[in-house]
């Protein structure tokens, strides 16, 4: 069988650039997705009924639609709304932040709810404010509990970034597919791409298991 492994080394810089885009997208989406998810969670736990209802509606709404639809939607909608082209990278980033924020919010909320109300009451009983109680007592414990789940969700995010090929962003997957069809080396490239995703995800997954062991309560 004709299997040319050197097609990968010949196109290394293109593939590496694609991986860089994938990692950059994953990293930024993770960071801002967590921020957005935290904001959503605080809104949902807030005493104000309207705010909480809106945030809940948002989270449930986003979780009810496919990611690829959100990516498409932002790509075509954002220019219409803002009147400017922001390009595939930023439109994809916005889509991932909006999408992942909803999932992170669910995780963060579950993490906070897993900490007994008595902990917050104990903090309040010593004169701490609600925010101090959250910051020094509830959140540090909640974070330990949710860290493995957050990382698992991040692995899913890393894999899901491959969907950006629909808006023509040159991530690792798109770069592989391009080289594959251009050089007629479909088997080599897709095998290689699968291998890279596999290795990165497995390494991250073993980190999850380490964390679970370490933070076991």
């Amino acid at each position: 069988m004709d299997f040319d492994i050197f097609v990968i080394t010949r196109n290394f810089s293109l593939l590496a650039e694609g991986m860089l885009t994938t990692l950059r997208l994953t990293g930024l989406a993770l960071l801002f997705g967590l921020v957005w998810g935290t904001i959503l969670t605080l809104a949902r736990l807030a005493p104000g009924r309207l705010l909480s209802a809106l945030a809940t509606l948002y989270v449930n709404g986003i979780r009810a639609v496919p990611l690829i639809m959100v990516i498409f939607w932002i790509y075509f909608l954002l220019p219409v709304l803002s009147g400017t082209q922001i390009g595939p990278f930023y439109s994809a980033l916005v889509a991932f932040i909006l999408f992942e924020g909803a999932y992170f919010s669910e995780i963060i909320r579950a993490g906070i709810k897993s900490i007994s109300q008595g902990q917050l009451r104990a903090a309040l009983s010593t004169g701490m404010t609600y925010l101090q109680g959250m910051r020094y007592v509830v959140l540090p414990q909640a974070f330990r509990k949710m860290a493995p789940v957050l990382l698992t969700q991040s692995i899913a995010l890393f894999q899901d970034t491959s969907l950006v090929y629909v808006v023509g962003l040159m991530d690792f997957m798109t770069a592989s597919a391009m080289v594959a069809s251009r050089d007629g080396r479909l088997v080599e490239l897709y095998t290689f791409a699968a291998f890279v995703y596999l290795v990165i995800s497995l390494v991250a997954a073993s980190a999850v298991r380490l964390m679970e062991k370490k933070f076991k309560v």
């Binding site: 008595g118 009451r121 104990a122 009983s125 309560v217």
Partner: peptide, 16 residues
């Protein structure tokens, strides 16, 4: 609350 101490049934020490 600063001036009134409270002890709970389940201790509620901060485990972390």
């Amino acid at each position: 609350r600063q001036r009134i101490g409270m002890v709970f049934q389940n201790f509620e020490l901060y485990p972390h």
